Simulated assay, not measured.
Amino acid sequence: MYAIPDSRLPLPQVLDRFPAGVPHRRNHVNDYLLVPREVDYFNGFLALLGRAQPPLQTDQLATAARNLNDVAAGDTPSPCIQQRIQHAHLLEQLLQDRDWEPSADISRELKLVVAYLHASRQLIPDTVPGVGHLDLAIVIDTAWPKLAAEVANFVDYQRLRHLEAERQGRSDDAIAFNRSSWLELREIEARLHEHQRRVREGSYAPEPFTYFRVH
């Protein structure tokens, strides 16, 4: 319920570096025509999020969509896109949680990503079968290096809040539990785990005698 995958399913490599010598002619994602000015706008948005690679070309996007269609099940997005959609909704939960205060140094990127999730101006319509969320997946991947640690903290916050709510016999939303509460409880849990580790590695009993004598 509160776990995030240890590994991220990769998006097509062509999105990071287009192979040299390949003609740049394709401009359709399935049957949807990519408009150059919208691609430029999208590249500008990615730059705001910190994309370091060269701007995306229409042929890269078309090639990536074709690669994903090969592994998608009908109209269902490929697993790597589904994973990014889940991460996008988790970021939305993080931003909307009234008791969680996101770290100030990622607030800008967080708001930009969640805004794109609901934006009417998106590069690829969500209705395009199989790859309609490819642009969102690219947005998530671009911002993820900055957001990953905050997401992991929020997931742990949800876990500890749930445990505390169970202890009190109340629902998660009914208890007072904020970032400070999470930090305090996390520290208590860490000390408990350290104590348990020492117990496993040692013993409360005195060390046994290596030999004994009979007088």
Rank of each mutant, 00 (worst) to 15 (best):
F209A: 05
N153T: 00
W144D: 10
A152E: 13
E189Y: 00
V139N: 08
L163I: 15
A174P: 05
A205C: 02
R197T: 15
W182A: 03
T142R: 05
P206E: 06
S181A: 02
Q168K: 09
R159Y: 13
R191I: 03
D141P: 00
V214W: 12
I138A: 10
R159G: 01
E194D: 06
R161L: 12
I140S: 04
W182G: 00
A205D: 07
A176G: 06
A165E: 10
Y211H: 08
N178D: 15
H195Y: 01
R179P: 07
A165D: 12
E166W: 14
W144I: 14
S181D: 07
A190H: 04
G169V: 11
R200E: 15
A174Q: 15
H193Y: 09
I175F: 11
L160V: 13
R200S: 14
S181R: 01
E187K: 02
I188L: 15
Y204R: 07
T142P: 06
P208A: 00
L147F: 08
R170Y: 11
H193P: 00
F177D: 09
T142S: 11
G202M: 04
Y211P: 00
I140V: 12
Y211N: 04
R179S: 12
R186F: 00
D135Y: 04
R191T: 03
A165H: 13
F209Y: 02
A143F: 11
R159E: 06
